[in-house]
């Protein structure tokens, strides 16, 4: 158990989403769901974040933005694809301008389905992400110990 689990800070980016999942992500912060109970803060700044919540099917223009945000996050970090668009492209999969799924751009660690995702599902997803985060932290430590 590391402290990563007690204070996972998130960053959220809307990569070509319809807003539905985005407002549910925001709703998680609000009184009804209040994820700050778990120490989760929506930082909005990649350099402070541990978990990258990404919604939407990712279009051409967004590729670079998503990569930039991902690169600017300090390790260990976890990417959570929120919603069907982010997991597979959803109903917009066939559109000419979308890549369909976040994993086409950056490695995704947790997939959260739903259209739109329910806040409870997001919380579940983040809990899963924390597990992955801790795993990555142990790996990172091992890596550091080796070198």
């Amino acid at each position: 158990m590391t402290y990563l689990a007690k204070s996972p800070w998130i960053i959220h980016y809307d990569a070509t989403s319809c807003n539905g999942c985005d407002i549910e992500v925001l709703a998680c912060l609000t009184p009804m769901y209040d994820v700050e109970r778990f120490g989760i803060i929506n930082t909005g700044n990649p350099k402070h974040a541990d978990i990258f919540l990404i919604t939407g099917s990712v279009n051409e223009q967004n590729v670079k933005v998503v990569e930039n945000i991902y690169n600017q996050m300090p390790n260990p970090k976890v990417v959570v694809a929120i919603g069907i668009c982010a997991t597979s492209g959803g109903i917009f999969r066939e559109c000419y301008n979308v890549l369909g799924g976040v994993d086409k751009v950056i490695p995704v660690d947790v997939y959260v389905p739903g259209c739109a995702v329910r806040p409870e599902a997001i919380i579940d997803g983040v809990v899963k992400a924390i597990g992955v985060l801790e795993e990555k932290h142990t790996q990172m430590k091992k890596g550091a110990a080796k070198s």
Binding site: Y3, L4, K6, D34, G39, D50, N75
Partner: peptide, 18 residues
């Protein structure tokens, strides 16, 4: 709201980061 000790968790977590 978060646990009272949350600020300490935050700080300790930050030390675990790259």
């Amino acid at each position: 709201g978060p646990p009272i000790l949350q600020p300490f968790y935050d700080v300790l977590k930050l030390f675990e980061k790259e």
